[in-house]
Computed example of a mutant assay.
Amino acid sequence: MDSDESQIIPPGRDMDLDRDILVDGFLALYEECTHETLMRSKPISSFVQKFQPAIIQTKTRMMKASDFEVKAVIGRGHFGEVRVVREKTSNAVFAMKVLRKSDLLNQPEISFFEEERDIMATNKSPWITQLHYAFQDATNLYLVMDFHAGGDLLSLLSRQELLHC
Rank of each mutant, 00 (worst) to 15 (best):
L104Y: 12
V98E: 04
N123V: 10
F135N: 03
I128Y: 10
Q107T: 11
T129N: 06
V93K: 03
N123I: 02
D146K: 12
Y142P: 04
T139D: 14
A138T: 10
Q107N: 07
S111H: 08
T122S: 13
M145E: 00
I128E: 01
L105C: 00
Q107S: 09
H148P: 07
A138C: 09
D152C: 15
G151M: 02
I110H: 05
K124V: 07
G150L: 06
S111P: 01
R100I: 09
F135R: 04
Q130G: 01
E114G: 11
V144M: 01
A121S: 08
L131M: 14
A149E: 11
F94W: 08
Q107I: 06
N106T: 14
L104A: 08
E115C: 13
H132M: 06
V93Y: 03
Q136N: 06
M120Q: 06
I119S: 01
Q107M: 09
A92N: 11
L105R: 07
W127E: 00
E116D: 07
H148I: 12
T129P: 04
F113S: 14
E109R: 13
D103R: 15
F147R: 05
M96H: 09
A149Q: 11
P108V: 03
G151E: 04
R117N: 00
K97L: 04
W127T: 04
D118F: 06
I119E: 00
A92H: 02
F112D: 12
T122Q: 10
N106G: 11
V144H: 08
A134L: 06
E109H: 09
L104C: 10
I119M: 10
